[in-house]
Design a protein around this nucleic acid. Structure first.
Lengths: 218, 218
DNA sequence: CGTCGATGTCAACGGGTGTTGGCCTACACT
DNA sequence: AGTGTAGGCCAACACCCGTTGACATCGACG
């Protein structure tokens, strides 16, 4: 195995421009293949979950040999780790009145899920694969938790220096439970009434819920 | 294969007394084995999901040969169908004031999940297995939907004969999204803040949410 | 006591999986 | 032009899976 291959496991940003990466690392001829593998992997993991998504099927989708997947990503587990790199891209909602935060969060997550199936792949895989579940906890800890904390602090539920009025971690957990429950019933289990509701209806119904978990009281 | 074996695939009620079944069908010597298989299957499906739960592992847990599983249940798919038989046991909350329905529902689901891992098995398997997802939709249609409809009618949101004030199916879908999201984050993904909350806290926080989905407005 | 069906064990089959190593090809550089 | 190396394919290995059929054992019933 070429010594350079090992270092290339870390994937670039999900939706980032494949061209114009770090100019210190010249583009390689295999970059297109790498990207094709990653794209096929995300599709398969999202559609089938970790176990049913086979290396052979992913390689067929990417129109290459299964052994190439191993050469570039080392193992199925590391391929999944690369394919499950996910950035929620949570904005800071800086110019939004505090009353609209819940609805804005619901809308942002709906948009994010529909434009990038990585999160669905993670959700499907996380139900059975411990590593995928760990990755979801990490995304929660690194992205959801801090964002919710910042929003709560800004809106005055908790002060940056002092004691939080209510544990912010639990607020983030409650918000996640509702948002992931929506993703589960809408995109994975395909529960008919949830699939049938449109974006505006979901924002209207779930917005106040998230709003209360974020800033309200039981 | 004995002709009687095929008919025995349908499992008895989940927590029902294994003795004193239909007296027309005399108990068989293999009933204990059947029950042991079913118990081991539920544990394995709940812990590992459909794909990772192997017939061999289930048979080992039940202390019998894998071929017995095939003899009694025909195939892995039919074994899962038998093990995933699930009764939510939703009460009608007859003597409860309408304001307490949301909290009562949350409490009932929490109790039900903790006393019977079948629902967790279904949730884990439903994320990747289409048949399991179909079963979840069926449970929703047969048990959750009608129960929510009855509660909503009783509390006056919808009248039995007339036009519902708001689609009751969507109310049931929203309730399911929050309750399954709780199960997912608490029992499957093991999100720390959700795992750390106790029953009373969860009822306090989620109760008003379910209450609004059941009887309120966006 | 002998028979027969139910209960259970054992070994194997066919197929699919992740993974590996050898080989060929084509490009880039001197 | 020659050569080294990265990119790619092929065949195979070892393993595990669901499933099957042949054979042993036990219990009830004539």
């Amino acid at each position: 195995m070429s010594p350079r291959d090992q270092g290339a496991v870390a994937a670039p940003g999900v939706g980032s421009d494949p061209v114009a990466a770090d100019p210190a690392v010249p583009p390689r001829r295999s970059d297109a293949t790498r990207a094709a593998i990653l794209r096929a992997a995300r599709e398969r993991f999202a559609a089938d979950g970790y176990d049913r998504a086979t290396i052979r099927a992913i390689a067929t989708d990417a129109a290459i040999d299964p052994s190439m997947v191993m050469r570039y990503y080392g193992s199925k587990e590391r391929l999944f780790a690369a394919a499950a790199e996910f950035d929620l891209r949570l904005p800071d909602f800086g110019d939004l009145p505090a009353e609209g935060l819940g609805a804005a969060l619901v809308g942002h997550f709906l948009d994010r899920w529909e434009e990038d199936e990585t999160m669905i792949a993670l959700l499907r895989a996380g139900a059975t694969n411990p590593a995928a579940a760990q990755r979801m906890r990490q995304i929660f800890a690194d992205q959801v938790g801090p964002a919710i904390r910042a929003l709560a602090v800004r809106a005055g539920v908790s002060s940056p220096g002092g004691e939080p009025a209510l544990p912010v971690e639990q607020r983030a957990g409650l918000i996640t439970s509702q948002l992931l429950g929506l993703a589960l019933t809408r995109y994975v289990l395909l529960l008919p009434p949830v699939v049938g509701m449109d974006r505006a209806e979901l924002v209207d119904w779930l917005g106040p819920t998230i709003q209360r978990y974020l800033l309200g009281r039981p």
